[in-house]
């Protein structure tokens, strides 16, 4: 297997056009004996390295592991809450943030909250000679690209963001997850939610109204979706109610984030 450490846009593009897989922190694509002809490693790509945080947000380079970001975050931060629920301690020490964003399974733990926070991905593709960026969004466009950075703005329209997930065993694949962002203006409350695990890609929706009506509205939307098992409906509603409950208990104390 050939090992390519790309340092220029041209090098990355050559890899992309030859369908060379990009590796993150671990080497999952090599598991159970599979050996690609070559892989491209962007962890030392000289554009964004490490974690750069300032008052306007976080910039996460391709070398940053989940556990490094976790350590840099305030433990109350919702991103920390998400990362703490991802895998095991040893896994978080090798899995990169960019890898988790770049290779999302239909249900990816980082996606809902990154989406709500309005994260931007920075990438190299075959059509531009400079690094591009756009809002993180599912599904990714079909043309190949290599992620070189993740920008997470500090400011958010939400007063409160929460994350919940459901798995079969404590350490097995995530089957369902929910990210919710809550905002309030006067008596009107807005809830944006991103739910992974219901179909091929995450379901996103927004409901607004008096706070006591939020739960009912979400439940209506889910019912309209169809194809959601009663168990998953109940699970999502329980997650939503749990989040709303948590919000009510916190709202009077301080605004989140």
């Amino acid at each position: 297997m050939r090992w390519i450490e790309a340092h220029t846009i041209r090098q990355v593009q050559r890899c992309l056009s030859a369908n060379v897989p990009i590796v993150g922190g671990g080497s999952w694509l090599l598991s159970d004996g599979s050996v690609p002809e070559a892989v491209c490693d962007l962890r030392e790509y000289p554009w964004a390295q490490g974690i750069t945080g300032n008052e306007s947000g976080w910039m996460i380079g391709p070398d940053v592991t989940l556990s490094q970001w976790l350590q840099a975050l305030d433990s109350e931060n919702v991103i920390a809450e998400v990362i703490r629920k991802m895998g095991t301690p040893i896994f978080r020490r090798v899995a990169t943030v960019i890898g988790a964003v770049a290779n999302p399974q239909p249900v990816a733990d980082l996606y809902p909250v990154m989406r709500l926070l309005g994260a931007d991905i920075f990438y190299i593709d075959l059509h531009h000679d400079s690094i591009q960026h756009e809002k993180l969004m599912w599904p990714f466009r079909a043309n190949p690209r290599a992620l070189v950075g993740l920008w997470v703005p500090a400011s958010t329209p939400y007063r409160f963001i929460a994350f919940r997930k459901y798995t079969k065993g404590r350490l097995t694949r995530v089957l369902l997850n929910l990210g919710t962002g809550l905002a309030q203006q006067g008596d009107i409350m807005t809830a944006d939610f991103v739910i992974g695990g219901l179909s091929q890609w995450p379901y996103e929706d927004r409901v607004a109204g008096a706070s006591h009506s939020i739960s009912h509205q979400i439940s209506q939307r889910l019912r309209n979706q169809g194809n959601i098992t009663p168990f998953y409906q109940a699970l999502i509603m329980e997650m939503c109610d749990d989040v709303l409950n948590q919000w009510e208990h916190r709202a009077d104390r301080r605004s989140e984030l």
Binding site: T167, K168, G169, R170, L171, T172, R173
Partner: peptide, 12 residues
């Protein structure tokens, strides 16, 4: 795989 076969974890 251990990603899909659920086993008791220490927290359980």
């Amino acid at each position: 795989s251990l990603f899909d076969y659920a086993l008791p974890a220490p927290q359980d």
